[in-house]
Each structure stands twice: as C-alpha cells, then as structure tokens.
Simulated assay, not measured.
Amino acid sequence: MLTIWGRLNSHNVKKVVWAAEEIGLEYVRHDVGGRFGMDAAYLARNPNALIPTIEDDGFVLWESNAILRYLAEAYAPHLWPADPRTRAAADKWMDWQFAYADAQREVFLMLVRKPPEAHDPAVIARGIEETGRMMTILEDCLARQPWLTGESFGIADIPMGTYAHTWYALDLARGDYPHLRGWYERLIVRPGYASNVMIPLT
C-alpha cells in the first residue's frame, strides 16, 4: 500500500493525495509538517524537511511533481502517455506551476494565515496582478483545448488544478476567464478533487 506523509492543507500534499485517488490507489496518509511537526524517522526519509514524501513498496520519494510522474508512470500511463511531445507538454505545465506558486504565495499567506490587521494592501494588489497575469496564460491554453495537454485529463492538470481552487477561493478581484472557469468546473466534479483539494484554506 502507498504511504503518504504530509498535512492535507498543503498544496503539494493535496496534489499527491488527489492523484492517488484519481488513479484508484489504496493509500494511508500521516499528518506531518506544520503544527504536526516532523520526527527523526520522517527526516531520515526526507532530509529537506518538506512535505510530501511517499513510500511505495520500499521505494521512498519526495518532491510532489516527481511523485506525480512516478505514480502516473507506475500505475496510470493514460495520464502521462509515452509520446515524448505529450510528456514534454505535461512537464512544461508542471514546471510552470512552481512559478505560479511563487506568484500566489504572499497573497495566500496574507489573506489566509495572517490576521486582518497584518494585511498589506500593496502585497495583495501585487498578488492580484501577478496571479491574474499568469492565469491569462492558462486561459489562452484552455481556449484551444479542454485540458492542459489536450483532449483528455492528464497528470499536468493536477498541479495547477490544485492552485486554481485556491485562486478561486481567495478573496481576490478576478477578471473574466471563461475557459479557465470551464476547466475548473470540470475539475470540481472529480471526486478526488472535491474531497481533497476543495477543503477550507488554512
């Protein structure tokens, strides 16, 4: 059975748990990180002191998007086909997600993890502008195809799908992104997304 370590209010843990459920894998998850801390046994598995980490039949792996690629390759090749161009397109969006996370991080921390009296309007405005600019890039892709790598849901939809929910859940001014909204609406009916990604922001 797959073991996942990490608290579920982490974007990177949400990705991995959603992927496991999308694929249909049995798993057990242990809360690690944040208020749950990290013990020596965990740090022996992941010396970076970050989450998530998985173990699959003795194989230990960390880095969330590497975990997604591994799970797709091992258990769900339909989510990451062997065609090199499809894989390259998936890799592009999976790598791009980290740049998006950087754009969203400060406004997320400001609106979710800091008290109202600590909110900085300049930080919030900057977050609105930068996340909006990047979502325009996603909108342009989704205007041409229903999923990030083409006609079918794939592993590349998981990282940005996780962050898209946060973007919609944050109290931000947003422009009109009809194709992005359509993609999001296709995600929210997926059971693993609804139960693991669409949870309260904390």
Rank of each mutant, 00 (worst) to 15 (best):
W18L: 07
W18E: 00
A19F: 04
A20K: 00
E21D: 11
E22M: 11
E26V: 01
E26Q: 14
Y27P: 09
R29F: 03
R29D: 06
H30W: 10
H30R: 11
H30Q: 14
D31W: 05
V32Q: 05
G33F: 06
G34P: 09
R35A: 15
F36S: 08
F36W: 08
G37T: 05
M38C: 02
A40M: 08
A41Y: 00
Y42G: 06
Y42F: 14
Y42A: 01
Y42V: 01
L43W: 03
L43T: 01
A44R: 02
A44N: 01
R45W: 03
N46F: 12
P47M: 02
N48P: 04
N48W: 09
N48L: 14
A49T: 03
A49C: 08
L50N: 03
I51A: 06
P52L: 07
T53S: 13
T53P: 08
I54D: 10
E55Y: 03
D56F: 02
D56I: 00
D57Y: 05
G58N: 00
V60N: 01
V60I: 10
L61R: 02
L61K: 03
W62F: 15
N65D: 15
N65A: 07
N65P: 11
A66Q: 04
I67K: 01
I67Q: 04
R69G: 09
R69N: 11
R69E: 14
R69D: 06
R69H: 04
Y70P: 03
Y70N: 05
Y70K: 04
A72C: 09
Y75K: 03
Y75G: 02
A76P: 10
P77V: 05
H78L: 10
L79T: 03
W80C: 15
P81H: 08
D83E: 13
R85I: 14
T86Y: 10
T86E: 12
R87V: 10
A88K: 04
D91S: 13
K92V: 11
K92D: 11
W93Y: 06
W93T: 04
M94R: 05
M94L: 04
M94G: 04
D95L: 14
D95H: 15
Q97T: 10
Q97C: 11
F98H: 12
Y100D: 03
A101N: 14
A101L: 13
A101G: 11
A101M: 13
D102V: 13
D102R: 13
D102L: 14
A103S: 12
Q104T: 06
Q104I: 15
Q104G: 09
V107I: 12
L109I: 11
M110H: 11
M110K: 09
M110P: 02
V112C: 07
V112I: 09
R113T: 07
K114H: 12
K114C: 11
K114F: 10
P115Y: 04
E117W: 06
H119A: 12
H119C: 09
D120M: 06
V123H: 02
V123P: 00
I124T: 08
A125E: 15
R126S: 12
R126T: 08
G127R: 12
I128G: 12
E129Q: 15
E129S: 14
E130T: 13
T131V: 09
T131L: 10
G132I: 05
M134G: 07
M134W: 11
M135C: 13
I137G: 10
E139Y: 12
D140W: 09
D140I: 07
C141F: 02
L142M: 10
A143V: 11
A143F: 07
R144F: 08
Q145M: 08
P146N: 05
